[in-house]
């Protein structure tokens, strides 16, 4: 296990008598896509604003990339890129002028700016938008432009607060391809969303309710803990001895005539291997895997926390 790139302990924020964030402890691995989920008003944005140094917590410690954010918020600024719910492009000036503006604040100009922006512009499909003013761009494009600006100074971490809210499905699709590419390039991504299918695009999920952490796991671990698990309908005939191997790999089987239904709380690398081996090369396409939807998992999680809440 490497040293976490984001480490918060006992993070608390009170506004008057209202506790928005309550003793939250978080650890994010470098290079991970970390989903930070929760219902409306659960304290997500407040937490992000504390992690990036825009808000001083009432109590707790925060280290981002080894820097104490509470004591020295300015030192972390070169290392993080942030995109809020409102895409922070200046209206009235073109996208290109926005780029020059933000790059200028990070001290990037001349050849360095051309090189970086040239690469980002192609990767984010922004070529046609360069001369446009943000207010005349469709939401999806504006969102991508905002993300492009947040990555221009090549930060080690990206904080994205509901980056895909109100964006159409095609733009969301492209957006997540970009996010996954960023993570593959070693960048840590901390992201919130209400499109719960997007939780599956992430490596780790933290779920908060009423300012408290109620779950912190991989998507598959959440499936195992908070759903009825996978259901696999196998149509193709199985190789000899396959059922025994599947049972050893943790699958439970039920027969219904010729049809076979397998169940498993979660699917990991060994269980996939077992499944492939059991089916054999000829029948590799002869199955249907029903995956528990993240929507249902989170509905359960929220309902459970509401029941146990004081």
């Amino acid at each position: 296990m490497s040293e976490p790139i984001i480490a918060a302990t006992g993070l608390t924020k009170r506004f008057g008598t209202f506790t928005a964030v309550d003793a939250l402890t978080l650890a994010v691995e470098p290079g991970a896509i970390f989903a930070f989920l929760g219902a409306n008003g659960s304290g997500k944005s407040t937490t992000i604003r504390m992690l990036i140094g825009l808000l001083v917590p009432t109590a707790g410690t925060i280290r981002v990339d080894g820097i104490d954010v509470i004591a020295t918020p300015r030192r972390v600024r070169d290392r993080i890129g942030y995109m809020g719910q409102k895409v922070s492009l200046y209206q009235g000036i073109t996208l290109r002028e926005n780029v020059e503006f933000y790059a200028g604040l990070y001290g990037i100009d001349g050849a360095a700016l051309e090189r970086r922006w040239g690469a980002v512009r192609e990767r984010f499909a922004l070529r046609d938008a360069e001369g446009e003013r943000p207010e005349s761009l469709p939401a999806g494009l504006r969102q991508r432009a905002g993300l492009a600006l947040a990555t221009l100074h090549e930060p080690r971490l990206l904080f994205l607060d509901e980056p895909t809210a109100g964006v159409d499905v095609a733009s969301r699709d492209l957006f997540w391809q970009i996010i996954q590419d960023e993570a593959d390039a070693g960048r840590t991504v901390f992201v919130t969303t209400h499109f719960l299918e997007e939780a599956d695009y992430c490596d780790q999920i933290s779920f908060i309710a009423d300012g408290r952490l109620v779950a912190n796991a991989t998507p598959e671990e959440l499936r195992a803990a908070h759903s009825d698990g996978y259901r696999i309908d196998v149509e193709a005939p199985l190789a000899a001895g396959a059922l025994a191997r599947l049972a050893a790999a943790g699958f439970s089987a039920t027969h219904n005539g010729d049809a076979l239904t397998l169940r498993r709380p979660q699917i990991d690398a060994p269980s996939l291997d077992a499944l492939a081996a059991a089916l054999g090369p000829a029948a590799i396409g002869g199955l249907r895997i029903e995956q528990p939807a993240m929507n249902d998992i989170f509905t359960r999680l929220i309902e459970r926390t509401q029941v146990t809440a004081p």
Binding site: R49, Y82, Y106, G107
Partner: peptide, 9 residues
Amino acid sequence: TFDQLQLTP
């Protein structure tokens, strides 16, 4: 944009 500005150097 104000948040963004505050997050720059």
